[in-house]
Design a protein around this nucleic acid. Structure first.
Lengths: 209, 209
DNA sequence: GGTTTCGTGGAGGTCAAGATCGGCGTGCAA
DNA sequence: TTGCACGCCGATCTTGACCTCCACGAAACC
């Protein structure tokens, strides 16, 4: 009848509010990444954090807000990473490589946070859709500025090219991660795709065959 | 305007089994495309088809099976389209262009069936994940054969490049469709991205700067 | 050391959505 | 004309997940 008298590792320990919130966010990210939004239950998140559900609801108004908090972090992370990569040099070839590596780093690390952005199962929710689209748009816009500055293309044209490069990075990085081939390391894959991107984009708008 | 010009779905009219099934599939595709899997209710699908829910369950065992039937059609369509495009010529530059146009055609037409493949919100379901991954894999493999035949790269390398090109086509086509800019027609966008892809992939494995 | 306060925990309400049963009407055959 | 068979519909059930209510215990303060 009585619960285990000896103190469980985390069960029952009181934490400062911010620490508790951080712990809840971490637990929620693990569950959302592993199961997606719909298959993730608030019970699972609370259990994973070692607390009960009311505690969760004292920190977040609902499941959607909890998800959006994590999604915002993930979106900000990848966008900032890409922007930093683009600002890291003035050599466009190195820029392409740095940006490609930024995508691969993000996919390979960040505890799978990329799944929240690139594999969300809540894209019908307008708030989610808006954030996910914003990531592609922001990354592409940063790339597009570099393209249009050097190539003299129209805004729509350079945006389509930029989105193409972003899609290339995003899809290939996810494929590389899913393949999980240890004989094909991250650096090598990212460099290969970066060379593909650079060969494609350099020299625009030359139209030779 | 409704996209059903002639079929008069009168409430209470009896249809042959196959015709009814086709009608149900069409209605289900509209609802799934518009709302995604989770937000789509079986009631909505039945209403859209002008029948009641029991009829739906007499044709399909459950919601998942109905979805998978549609998903299979969409997957087969895009894979076949890409394979046809690759077989349509022996000139690799034209191959790239034809394949890119295949993606753009698929996204622009097919009543939004591409959403089932590229924007599914049921990727946590293994059966769905398997089919969606299979599309990218099959398309990339077809592209990869052409690449490795001409470039002498390893299988893993040519697959990563092929997946990159597929991702480029897929993401840029969806972006172009979402932008909905009438002054930037499909043909022009597809050609632009095709030229990006061709500049990138031609001449591999040259490694000059 | 006692009291007060606040956070925690288990048990429960509510509701939406997938999945199913008793009437009903139509068309065919005798 | 009339009985029969078959497919369709309204109404219902159940499940599962999000979201709160009543006891307990630990910390803080005088």
């Amino acid at each position: 009848m009585s619960t285990t008298p000896e103190t469980a590792p985390k069960r029952g320990s009181r934490l400062p509010r911010l620490a508790r919130r951080a712990q809840l966010l971490e637990a929620a990210q693990e569950v959302f990444v592993a199961n997606g939004y719909h298959a993730a239950a608030m019970d699972d998140i609370a259990d994973r954090a070692g607390v009960s559900k009311p505690v969760l609801y004292q920190h977040f108004p609902g499941k959607l807000e909890l998800y959006l908090a994590l999604l915002d972090s993930s979106c900000d992370a990848i966008v900032a990473s890409v922007q930093d990569a683009l600002k890291s040099t003035e050599d466009n070839k190195l820029r392409v490589a740095a940006t490609m590596h930024a995508f691969y780093d993000y996919v390979a690390n960040a505890q799978g946070a990329f799944r929240l952005v690139f594999e969300s199962d809540l894209t019908n929710e307008p708030a989610v859709r808006e954030r996910v689209d914003r990531v592609t748009h922001a990354c592409a816009e940063a790339v597009s500025e570099v393209i249009s500055a050097d190539a003299g293309l129209s805004r729509e044209q350079s945006m389509v090219l930029a989105v193409s490069l972003v899609g290339m990075a995003q899809v290939s990085a996810r494929y590389w991660l899913g393949a999980g081939d240890p004989s094909f390391p991250q650096q090598q894959a990212a460099d290969l795709v970066a060379s593909l991107a650079w060969r494609g984009i350099r020299g625009f708008p030359r139209t030779d065959t």
